[in-house]
Design a protein around this nucleic acid. Structure first.
Length: 224
DNA sequence: GCCAACGTTGGC
DNA sequence: GCCAACGTTGGC
């Protein structure tokens, strides 16, 4: 069992994300029309045989940094080096980020983001291969993410397993994303509300279909 | 290394 | 329940 060390706390902000459509209080026709019109449904249906996926951005630190005597470095290269290129995403100690982990479904896709480093930005794509289960590091006394307030019979913190999918065709830097975000705030473009900029310290964050597709489309373009 | 942003803690 | 002090995140 791989035990990568990551530093993955995060921060919060209002939890604005709708994790699933819940039309029960609406008129059914209205609800269906809404679903029919939504790009989210159409695009993901084509991509994944009708199954609706959620999209995420997950931050990890690619450069060595000691926390309580343990190196918390975990880059996408480190993920690739794991057996089955799969690792558990341990160490998240922020409630909002944890709640997002608990929302994740097998096959959901996530951007792997390098943070707190020389070149922050999106480096690759991963997918969820195991849904939320208790993060064992909360019970390990000499783990940097040990949480003495968490009890075995009622764990506070969760983790998922992620598997490497591929590297981005090119590195998508934070600076580039920020430039689009700022332009889109004016023009109403797809990155106008990107969580990376609105919920600054959130280490696990949702992306809309539009945000995800737009960022993927950047791969085909020359960097600014 | 600096420091702004912002979540958490704990006294009251 | 308020809020000042403190700690962490993470870009620069």
């Amino acid at each position: 069992m791989p035990k990568p060390r990551k530093r993955l706390a995060g921060a919060a902000g209002p939890d604005k994300r709708a994790s699933g459509k819940c039309p029960k209080t609406e008129n059914l026709d209205e609800a269906l029309a809404k679903v029919e019109k939504s790009n989210h449904w159409k695009t993901s249906a084509f991509k994944n045989h009708g199954k609706i996926l959620n999209y995420w951005l997950m931050k990890s630190e690619p450069e060595s940094r000691m926390e309580k005597g343990v190196d918390v470095k975990f880059s996408i290269e480190d993920l690739k080096a794991q057996p089955k290129q799969t690792a558990c995403w341990d160490g998240v100690r922020n409630y909002q980020a944890r709640n997002f982990l608990r929302t994740m479904k097998v096959e959901d896709e996530a951007f792997f983001y390098h943070s707190n480093c020389k070149q922050p930005g999106i480096v690759g794509l991963v997918k969820i291969v195991k849904e939320a289960y208790p993060d064992y590091t909360q019970f390990e006394k000499n783990n940097p993410h040990y949480d003495p307030s968490s009890k075995e019979d009622n764990p506070k913190w969760s983790m998922v397993d992620v598997q490497f999918v591929r590297m981005m065709k090119r590195f998508i830097s934070l600076a580039e994303l920020k430039a689009y975000h700022q332009a889109h705030r004016v023009t109403g473009g797809p990155l106008k509300n990107m969580a990376l900029f609105i919920h600054q310290r959130l280490s696990v964050q949702p992306l809309t279909q539009e945000e995800f597709d737009f960022i993927l489309s950047l791969e085909e373009m020359e960097p600014n």
